[in-house]
């Protein structure tokens, strides 16, 4: 049997409130991440099946199967590599992108609209910005975990010749975040789902996956379509991953642009999502 005391003065309450408030202002986002990760356990089996099934299927189908039709190495000079080595970093980034688009959209709409748990969290000492931070932390953890598994399969398939290949785990994660956080900001502003998310997936994400230098180099496309790659976070992530995975040659300044672009989009996405979320919760 436990005992709690409810008698108090405002000064006593204030002292406790100030101490706890300071802690939650500091740590709140991590508690949201803990909650979100716990929520993900509800579909743990799907997560594991996806994490293992996706690399096996895609690496085999494209890197091994389709590769039998592609005799020539991809790229020029020292950068020329077998198709498997060329396509594997792109598949890793695409997988991260797919997971990010799922985790940064429907759970956000769920929390605001379908099962408005974000309002309950906000009733505790957690701000709208911290809710967004928490989702961001949780999805980042999932993306890193999933990318590690994917990377192990890439090694098993012999798709990673470079020493710095393991860094593609991070580039894939950031690629997912760069698009995901922008989608999160948009989803946080959605009042109703009238199929916008499905539309974005079908006519935004899938074309992006096809035309971002993933399955074939961007310069094989007509010049007037190259802009798709330049604005596509996936193209920047894929190119960066290729630099790290097998030493794909490109100007150092372009590598810097890849990193800056991906990080900038991630930051912009988070900042806007935080603002939208705070405004939506403060009715």
């Amino acid at each position: 049997m436990s005992t709690a005391t409810v008698g108090y003065t405002n000064d006593e309450a204030k002292a406790k409130a100030m101490a706890l408030g300071a802690k939650m202002r500091r740590m709140g986002g991590w508690y949201v991440a803990e909650h979100r990760l716990r929520g993900m356990l509800a579909y743990l089996q799907t997560m594991i099946a996806t994490s293992i099934g996706t690399p096996v299927l895609y690496l085999y189908a494209l890197g091994v199967g389709l590769a039998t039709l592609i005799d020539a190495n991809i790229g020029e000079g020292a950068s020329a590599v077998p198709y498997l080595v060329f396509v594997a970093p792109a598949l890793l980034c695409s997988a991260a992108l797919t997971t990010a688009t799922e985790e940064f959209t429907y759970p956000i709409l769920l929390g605001f609209k379908w099962n408005p748990i974000f309002f309950a969290i906000n009733s505790a000492p957690i701000s709208g910005g911290q809710i967004i931070n928490g989702v961001f932390y949780a999805v980042t953890i999932r993306l890193i975990g999933q990318s590690i598994v994917y990377y192990l399969f890439m090694i098993a398939f012999g798709a990673i010749p470079g020493l710095w290949g393991w860094l593609t785990i991070l580039t894939a994660t950031v690629t997912g975040m760069a698009i995901g956080t922008i989608l999160m900001a948009y989803t946080a502003s959605m009042k109703e789902d009238r199929g916008q998310l499905a539309y974005i997936m079908r006519f935004g994400i899938i074309p992006l996956t096809l035309f971002s230098g993933t399955f074939f180099p961007l310069d094989t496309l007509p010049a007037f379509l190259h802009w798709i790659g330049w604005i596509s976070p996936l193209w920047h992530g894929v190119e960066l991953s290729r630099v790290l995975a097998y030493g794909y040659e490109e100007p150092g300044s372009l590598t810097a642009v890849h990193i800056a672009y991906l990080l900038a989009l991630t930051i912009i996405g988070v900042v806007i999502a935080r603002r939208v979320s705070a405004r939506r919760l403060n009715k």
Binding site: A13, K14, K16, A17, M18, L20, G21, A22, M24, R25, G28, S123, A124, P125, I126, S127
Partner: peptide
């Protein structure tokens, strides 16, 4: 003091 109040 939103978070502080909400803690109580």
């Amino acid at each position: 003091y939103g978070p502080e109040i909400r803690s109580q």
